[in-house]
Amino acid sequence: MPGMLLCSSSACRARSGLIRTWAFLLAKLSLFLVATQAMAQASVENLQNTSNDPLTPKMAFEFHNYAQPVLTDRPASGADQGYFRFVLPHASFGVDQMMRASMPVVASSWDPERAVNGVGDFTIFNLAVHYFGTVKTGIGPLLVVPTASSPALGTGKWQAGVEAVVSAPHSWGLTTILASWQQTLDGSLQTVTAQPLLFFNLPDRFYLRSTGIASFALGKNAVVPVGLGLGRVFELPNGASLNTFVEPQYSVIQNGPGVAAFQVFAGVVIQLPVRFR
């Protein structure tokens, strides 16, 4: 046909070479983008992040302790609460969920006149988990059972409320916030808490942490602690992990007698791999 170029011409060979070059470059670029995405995903799913994320779908046994040697307006008084917490991921009604039960099994309170030892109030909440890319959210009901062995160690009243969590992993660490609202069934006490969690990963699976819980007993007292601590995660066989940490916390807001002016939060967390389904 008139105007048709033969493949043996130099122009055709040049065009074919250019096409092959661009195809090669596009293939390399595609492989690079896939590898970069995989590396980015892996970077946010490191062992420190999964060990500290409250929405990681792993069964966990947590042993936490709050030592409160300094209380506002109460010289020579203090408190200490050792918690056992159990975390269980599960799926009900086709929805990924996280349940956490918390019990102060070794609770103490003292002042110049006496010391009280026993157990505190039992708390349980269950979160429905939703995913927005790498960001996870959870929201669900909360219940407090008045199991405290002494009025100094608990409210002595049933409470109900709502717990919510938002968690976002990053290549450098993890940002999370936990918030709750709870009220006694007789309406005499309402409490709002907010716990921003900030984790900055270091080499050799160490990390820096700040996890103070701001608590507002409406109309009674308020406390906002800010902490800076150090932790380390140890990898165990079969996908399990051991997380240890200690975090001193100073209360930048201290409103009301008996709230912690200074405390030390320490803990050990064992995670075991399980699946929602």
Rank of each mutant, 00 (worst) to 15 (best):
A240P: 00
A35G: 14
A107Y: 05
T191D: 07
Y131R: 12
T72W: 04
P169M: 02
G212F: 09
Q41L: 02
F234Y: 03
L18K: 08
N117G: 09
H64Q: 05
G3I: 04
L185H: 12
G258S: 06
E45N: 09
L208G: 08
E113I: 06
A107I: 07
Q183E: 14
R100N: 02
Q182K: 02
I124D: 00
Q48I: 06
N221T: 14
S9L: 08
E62Q: 14
Q254T: 07
S102K: 08
T244E: 06
M99I: 06
L6M: 09
Q271F: 02
N46H: 13
V268D: 05
A35Q: 10
Q97M: 13
F86P: 12
L18N: 10
Q48V: 05
I270T: 15
N221H: 15
M99Y: 11
N243S: 08
L143M: 14
T147I: 08
A240I: 14
D186K: 02
N52E: 14
A266T: 09
K220M: 02
E113L: 12
M103L: 09
C7W: 07
N117Y: 11
S149H: 10
G140Y: 02
V166F: 00
G82Q: 02
L5D: 06
A14G: 06
A148D: 01
F24E: 14
I124E: 07
F63P: 02
L143I: 11
P54M: 07
V264Q: 08
A79H: 04
F32S: 15
S77L: 01
V165S: 07
L218K: 13
V87E: 05
N49E: 00
A42P: 15
Q37E: 12
V70G: 15
T36K: 06
S241T: 08
P146Y: 00
Y83W: 15
M1H: 14
A194G: 06
V144R: 10
F122R: 05
R20L: 09
I124G: 07
Q182S: 13
G231E: 03
A217L: 06
W110S: 00
G3N: 10
L202P: 13
H130L: 09
A35F: 15
T193S: 11
G239C: 03
D73H: 04
Y66V: 13
G231A: 11
A67T: 14
Q37C: 13
G212T: 02
V223Y: 14
S108E: 03
A38E: 08
A91T: 12
S180P: 03
Q254L: 03
V129I: 08
T211W: 12
A164D: 01
S77Y: 01
G258R: 07
F84M: 04
F132K: 11
A152S: 05
L142D: 03
R100H: 01
G118S: 09
F63L: 13
V106E: 00
S188C: 00
P57F: 04
